[in-house]
Design a protein around this nucleic acid. Structure first.
Lengths: 338, 338
DNA sequence: TTGTAAGCGTTATCAA
DNA sequence: TTGATAACGCTTACAA
């Protein structure tokens, strides 16, 4: 492995010059640059990042950290999509992403070891009590969250504008004549869930409607189906169910189908996440589209601001998009007008 | 930030001793260890990994690399699950995982920079022509693949035993009396797809059945549905369709349902991947379960072997499991016996 | 059982 | 426009 010394010798310059050719930190004469680059290519040289990190005090590595809860990373496509967004954005700036294992914190060993390496950490959907997060703050690692950390509002974040999403959704539901909404939500442990709840209460209150929420702990199993079935067979049946994830909404569709309930005539169904599932379900699902790649991009931007002196470290809200499909469209635009 | 010098001074020992307390590379007297650890805790010290990396020539960071094709990472839950397996296994050994952005290679900038940092790279489902892979081998970075690299069989790999999976599947299909199988597969660009094709041909040939394969480029869109519909309405209708992913299989289920074809009576359907979808579809889907966490574990093990002198760098095949559900179960075990 | 001192490959501060 | 040289914080012979 060639070092900066080898390149300097081959190019007939000092290591300082080679260093500056690579860092761009000061001007180097064009022909000198050419000579250095050629020597570097000949020797197959590239700067050792660990040496650079030691000299600068910056590793150029960011950590990323997903909810520990039941390996959500691979059950909800939102997270891998976010990870890609983060990784792409960071890559463009020369930063890399280290995935922080969920086990961190239980396993005392790797904890300090790995964290010492990081320039900062991005946390997706932080739970209040996650032991890892406490560790980051103690070492005062720069932290950005995707979704807000409810107990520490001072930490810069990016987030989806769920509030606006529900505002728009209710306008749509008004148009479609739905009047007995029900929110199928998870008991709030992250900001998303409490945002949705609050916005739901706000919108229903504004319309004089009851803001009925059913809490449903389990996102992905048979349980959601059972809960949905119970809701649909009980006395006071809602005419539209808003589910906090697309997969929950699919369970509702299924339960309704099994009970012979017509969708969207007797029951509207709305999901959130706009996964592949939503477009291809029967009937296609009205859903709220989020943009994890955009979130990733902004989160990295915020992090870099923080690392580079922290000028504009303002948090950012990302617009979402209501995608209307058959599951709530009982009056087409054509018929509605006159 | 405290350094090894601060700790040594506070504990009244040399930096060598502190170093050895942390590395475990030589014995240190128990009370000395205690003194050092206390000083370290007081000073909130943890070794700077970049310094360690510079001194040892090892970064303790592995790269991981997923198929570039249309961001498969977030469309197929297999990949995030694998990533978690890798990350957990690596974490236990003090290694971290850097996600290599898909853009790498197009963007010349970050290429050398990031790669210089890595001790090795694990590649999931390598495509033959991926430019990134060429780059790794040129720099002779140690490489392990998950799924085999078809053009370079010399590279150590871990893989699912798809061949055995199809063997078992066909035994099951025999029992259920299926006789006109059709394979819905993707044109082979990775070893998985060609393994499945080969095993399918082998099993059908052994039974004197036609080995009919339909190639279907698009895994997740409407297209699969259309292809399935075409297959089911054409003259020579299969009595069982084996799909190369669960989501493909779901499209088949849907098409069959729309056409009023009874499952599993008139048509059996089999998926692969054993995602959450399989268990909750209507009817529940017979599928081949893979164990990405296990693969991740073994891949990391192989990588460490390679890094530590490369003793037992033998590749490994991981058993998979046939999960029989209603979509192929037309004769229950009860009825079948007499 | 412990310590001294020479690297590891960069960047950064001076100075020219 | 370029160079010497001292950090950066660790590991690891070699010595004691």
């Amino acid at each position: 492995m060639a070092s900066i010394y080898d390149v300097a010798a081959a190019a007939g310059v000092s290591i300082t010059t080679v260093s500056h050719v690579y860092s761009g930190n000061r001007h180097v004469a064009a022909d000198t640059v050419a000579r250095v680059m050629e020597a570097a290519k000949d020797l197959d040289y590239s700067p050792r990042l660990s040496a650079r990190a030691l000299a600068t005090g910056r590793s150029m590595i960011l950590g990323v950290c997903f909810p520990a809860e039941s390996s959500l990373l691979h059950r909800n496509p939102y997270f891998p999509a976010l990870l890609e967004g983060l990784s792409a954005a960071a890559g463009k700036q020369g930063y890399g992403f280290l995935l922080i294992p969920n086990a961190l914190g239980e396993d005392g060993v790797s904890q300090g070891e790995l964290l010492g390496q990081l320039d900062g950490v991005i946390i997706a959907d932080p739970a209040e009590d996650d032991v890892r997060l406490a560790a980051f703050l103690e070492r005062d690692l720069p932290v950005i969250t995707v979704g807000r950390w409810m107990s520490r509002q001072d930490i810069p974040w990016v987030d989806n504008d769920h509030s606006k999403a529900l505002e728009n959704l209710f306008i749509h539901l008004d148009e479609q004549g739905y009047e007995r909404p029900l929110l199928l939500n998870k008991r709030p442990t992250i900001s998303y869930e409490s945002d949705v709840e609050q916005a739901f209460q706000r919108e229903t209150a504004a319309r004089g409607l009851p803001g009925r929420t059913v809490w449903c702990e389990d996102f992905f199993s048979q349980k959601t189906y059972d809960v949905a079935r119970e809701i649909l067979t009980a006395g006071d049946r809602p005419d539209v169910i808003i589910a906090s994830t697309d997969s929950q909404a699919l369970s509702v569709l299924q339960a309704a189908s099994d009970l012979g309930i017509d969708i969207p005539g007797e029951l509207g169904v709305v999901g959130e996440g706009e996964t592949v599932l939503a477009a291809s379900s029967i009937p296609p699902l009205t859903s709220i589209r989020v943009f994890p790649d955009k979130l990733g991009d902004l989160a990295v931007g915020l992090m870099l601001d923080l690392l580079n002196g922290g000028g504009g470290e303002r948090s950012k809200l990302v617009p979402v998009e209501l995608v209307v499909r058959a599951s709530t469209e009982r009056r087409s635009g054509m018929e509605a007008s006159p």
